[in-house]
Simulated assay, not measured.
Amino acid sequence: MQEEYMGYYANFDEEQRLVCQNITRIEFDTTINQLETFTQPAKKLTELGAATGRYSIYYAQKGLEVTAVELVPELVSQLEDNAAEQGVELSIHEANVTDVHFVPDSSQDIVLILGPLYHIQNESDRQAVIKEAHRILKPNGVAAFAYISRFFVAGLLAKMSSALVTPLVLGELHETGLVTSKDVDAFFRTGYFATPAEVEDLAQSAGFNIEKHVATDGFGRYIGAEINSLSESEYQAWLQHHLLVCSEPSLLGSSNHGLVIARKHG
């Protein structure tokens, strides 16, 4: 399974994902907005699963000392190139985020986990990532955990193909958070799709207090064509509306991505 995951991201244009459409821009814009009050006073940030560095480079440009950890060699190469192109210094490590022993205990103000949780299918490995975040954070440090909602994915499967609307496929997703059907691409076969309550429980069981829980995309993916057709001024108006309502609990399950921001016990 890991080999299929590595192959998928070796050939996927992750660099452009967060900027190529309005419905993906909103993920980045919302995450940055919701983290602002926590990152402003911070000095040291580690991103676990940094991909090509969209977030790591952004925060390095803001003056933070950033450690970026990524497993896929092709993404690490892009990350290194992007950092050099932008003229920022990052501490970059090619490693599995379940073990970041090279980051000292209680050394970080912020830890970002904005992708790994929806590709780690083993529960003990998901717990290991959260425990590593807790270990490297200073007392009262803050972690951000992104996930993909299994409730959203059920609707997405129905939109993709009626052949996926079966008790077997939907039942597996509902019960396990997995989609193993041969009729989906590698992103889904290697994915893990959580419930909002599960991610809160995961954080709390590792010693975190929940500070915020937001619907990163809201219901925008259901009206994707309409959101993508907005002009820049219209997009900004939609974004401001979305930011007003993204903390509404009733939106969490219908959002593609959710974001839990949690603080380590002092």
Score class of each variant (00 low, 15 high):
residue 163 A to W: 04
residue 176 T to E: 14
residue 167 P to M: 11
residue 170 L to M: 13
residue 154 A to M: 07
residue 166 T to P: 08
residue 155 G to E: 14
residue 153 V to M: 14
residue 184 V to Y: 06
residue 158 A to R: 09
residue 154 A to Q: 13
residue 164 L to D: 00
residue 157 L to W: 07
residue 177 G to D: 02
residue 157 L to F: 02
residue 158 A to W: 14
residue 154 A to L: 04
residue 161 S to K: 12
residue 159 K to Q: 03
residue 153 V to E: 06
residue 167 P to C: 05
residue 172 E to G: 04
residue 162 S to Q: 01
residue 151 F to T: 07
residue 149 S to I: 00
residue 181 S to E: 06
residue 159 K to A: 08
residue 178 L to S: 15
residue 177 G to Y: 03
residue 154 A to C: 11
residue 179 V to W: 04
residue 183 D to N: 13
residue 185 D to I: 11
residue 155 G to H: 14
residue 181 S to D: 07
residue 185 D to H: 08
residue 179 V to R: 00
residue 185 D to N: 07
residue 162 S to V: 15
residue 167 P to R: 12
residue 160 M to N: 01
residue 170 L to H: 15
residue 165 V to N: 04
residue 147 Y to N: 15
residue 167 P to E: 11
residue 151 F to R: 11
residue 149 S to Q: 14
residue 155 G to T: 10
residue 163 A to R: 13
residue 160 M to W: 06
residue 178 L to M: 11
residue 179 V to N: 00
residue 152 F to N: 00
residue 169 V to H: 11
residue 175 E to P: 14
residue 175 E to H: 08
residue 175 E to T: 13
residue 163 A to Y: 01
residue 171 G to S: 01
residue 159 K to R: 01
residue 180 T to S: 01
residue 149 S to D: 03
residue 183 D to Y: 05
residue 153 V to R: 00
residue 158 A to V: 04
residue 150 R to W: 06
residue 166 T to Y: 11
residue 163 A to D: 07
residue 162 S to G: 00
residue 168 L to W: 01
residue 171 G to W: 08
residue 153 V to S: 02
residue 159 K to W: 05
residue 151 F to K: 15
residue 173 L to H: 13
residue 172 E to I: 02
residue 172 E to T: 09
residue 174 H to E: 12
residue 159 K to N: 10
residue 156 L to T: 03
residue 154 A to W: 10
residue 154 A to T: 03
residue 159 K to S: 08
residue 151 F to V: 06
residue 172 E to H: 09
residue 182 K to T: 06
residue 172 E to N: 02
residue 184 V to C: 02
residue 178 L to N: 08
